[in-house]
Amino acid sequence: HERALMVNRLQKLTRMLRVHPDPKWKQEQQELIKRLK
């Protein structure tokens, strides 16, 4: 369940980064990718 939330968050971040590349979001995205591996 928590994994699904993280995947959701990651997808949302990816969409937001396409619109507005924010370093903070980029960092969070990298963190999520690490944790999901």
Results as ranks from 00 to 15, higher is better:
H1I: 12
H1A: 13
H1R: 14
H1F: 14
H1M: 14
H1E: 11
E2P: 06
E2K: 09
E2I: 12
E2G: 06
E2L: 14
E2D: 10
E2Y: 11
E2R: 08
R3K: 09
R3G: 03
R3F: 14
R3Y: 14
A4F: 09
A4S: 08
A4I: 13
A4K: 14
A4V: 11
L5Q: 14
L5T: 10
L5K: 14
L5W: 15
M6H: 03
M6T: 04
V7M: 14
V7L: 15
V7D: 02
V7P: 03
N8I: 15
N8L: 15
N8F: 10
N8V: 14
N8T: 15
R9T: 03
R9D: 02
R9E: 03
R9S: 03
R9I: 06
R9C: 09
R9M: 06
L10D: 00
L10F: 02
L10V: 03
L10R: 01
Q11T: 09
Q11S: 10
Q11H: 12
Q11P: 01
Q11M: 14
Q11L: 14
Q11W: 13
Q11Y: 12
Q11F: 10
K12Y: 15
K12R: 11
K12D: 07
K12G: 02
K12P: 00
L13A: 01
L13N: 00
L13D: 00
L13K: 00
L13E: 00
L13P: 00
T14E: 08
T14W: 08
T14R: 11
T14P: 00
T14M: 08
T14D: 04
T14V: 07
T14A: 11
T14G: 05
R15G: 04
R15E: 13
R15P: 01
M16Q: 03
M16H: 03
M16R: 04
M16G: 01
M16I: 06
M16N: 02
L17I: 08
L17A: 03
R18D: 04
R18N: 05
R18W: 04
R18L: 10
R18P: 00
R18S: 07
V19L: 13
V19N: 13
V19Q: 12
V19G: 11
V19A: 10
H20R: 11
H20P: 01
H20V: 06
H20M: 09
H20L: 08
H20K: 11
H20Y: 13
P21R: 07
P21K: 08
P21L: 06
P21G: 07
P21T: 07
D22V: 06
D22P: 00
D22S: 09
D22F: 09
P23Q: 06
P23E: 06
P23H: 04
P23R: 05
P23Y: 03
P23W: 05
P23M: 04
P23D: 04
P23V: 05
K24M: 09
K24D: 07
K24Y: 09
K24F: 07
K24A: 10
K24G: 07
W25R: 05
W25K: 05
W25P: 01
W25F: 10
W25N: 04
W25V: 12
W25L: 15
W25H: 07
K26D: 03
K26Q: 08
K26Y: 10
K26L: 13
K26P: 01
Q27F: 10
Q27V: 07
Q27G: 05
Q27N: 08
Q27A: 14
Q27E: 12
E28K: 01
E28A: 04
E28S: 02
E28G: 01
E28W: 07
E28Y: 05
E28D: 02
E28M: 05
E28V: 04
E28P: 01
E28N: 01
Q29D: 01
Q29T: 07
Q29E: 05
Q29F: 13
Q30K: 06
Q30Y: 09
Q30L: 13
Q30V: 08
Q30C: 15
Q30P: 01
Q30W: 12
Q30A: 10
E31P: 01
E31F: 07
E31C: 14
E31D: 11
E31L: 08
E31Y: 09
E31A: 09
E31K: 06
E31G: 04
E31Q: 09
L32P: 00
L32S: 01
L32H: 00
L32E: 00
L32W: 01
L32G: 00
L32C: 02
L32F: 02
L32Y: 02
I33Q: 04
I33E: 03
I33H: 02
I33T: 03
I33W: 06
I33G: 02
K34W: 07
K34M: 12
K34F: 11
K34Q: 11
K34T: 11
K34N: 09
K34H: 09
R35S: 06
R35W: 12
R35V: 08
R35P: 00
R35Y: 08
R35M: 08
L36M: 04
L36T: 01
L36G: 00
L36F: 03
L36R: 02
L36E: 01
L36P: 02
L36A: 02
K37P: 02
K37E: 06
K37T: 11
K37Q: 15
